[in-house]
């Protein structure tokens, strides 16, 4: 499995993401700059990390979603390549229309940086196979705009099809998101967006490895018990 990490001006979690992918897969991911439109054919997983692309101007992720690299990523996703967007990466995926809904300002209007509990609602995806359905994970969040919204009709279809993959559990919803939604997947099952940062909880030095399973699942490697 070969992975790639997207780099855009203002993203700042790319190095954490590169470190996580390297440690879990044993191979460093390639990096893709915003103007690149040729993504190598042997890349199986493209990760858009967190940060503040283009200073969050206009709306979080709005400018990044319209850069050339996103068309290339959309083409890859259409061919079945896995795409994971974390935090700003999730915002970029919804702005690009690759995932339904929108991420609005937190209901508290404050930036939140804390640990939350995440329920694995759907463990039957390429990103969550390492977990059990209903398993509750610890996971850090750090964002200002994570308040997921989608219209009622779309939401009901998503719930029925198992496209809500993660929910904030045990009253830890940090942003007011609809139905406690923390992560969603597309209907095809190869594009996942989530607000929490699994790349920051993958080894003992982080205080836990609950986030490791997402990468292990997506990279098709067995989760180590580090």
């Amino acid at each position: 499995m070969k992975s790639a990490v997207v780099q855009l001006p203002g993203l700042n979690r790319d190095r954490d993401m590169i470190a996580a992918l390297t440690k879990i897969s044993g191979k460093a991911p390639i990096t893709i700059w915003q103007t690149e439109t040729d993504i190598p054919d042997d890349v199986d997983l493209i990760v858009i990390p967190g940060g503040f692309s283009y200073g969050d101007y206009l709306r979080c992720g709005a400018i990044a979603a319209r850069m050339p690299v996103m068309q290339a990523i959309r083409d890859k996703a259409d061919k079945g390549v896995k795409v994971l967007g974390v935090c700003n990466g999730f915002q970029i995926l919804v702005e690009a229309g690759m995932l339904p809904g929108a991420l609005m300002r937190n209901s508290s209007l404050k930036f939140v940086c804390k640990e939350v509990k995440l329920e694995v609602v759907n463990a039957d995806t390429d990103f969550t196979r390492a977990y059990e359905k209903g398993q509750v994970l610890r996971c850090p969040v750090a964002h200002h705009d994570g308040n997921y919204f989608v219209d009622a009709e779309t939401l009901s279809g998503m719930e029925d099809r198992g496209e809500i993959v993660f929910r904030y559990a045990e009253g830890t919803n940090p942003n007011g998101s609809l139905n406690d939604i923390a992560g969603v997947i597309n209907t095809r099952g190869n594009v996942l967006g989530m607000m929490p940062h699994p790349e920051n909880l993958i080894e003992a030095a982080h205080g836990g490895n609950d986030g490791r399973g997402i990468f292990a699942s997506a990279l098709d490697v067995i989760a180590a018990t580090a």
Partner: peptide
């Protein structure tokens, strides 16, 4: 439609 508004919200 394309940029200035996010018509979802």
């Amino acid at each position: 439609e394309k940029l200035l508004a996010n018509t979802v919200i």
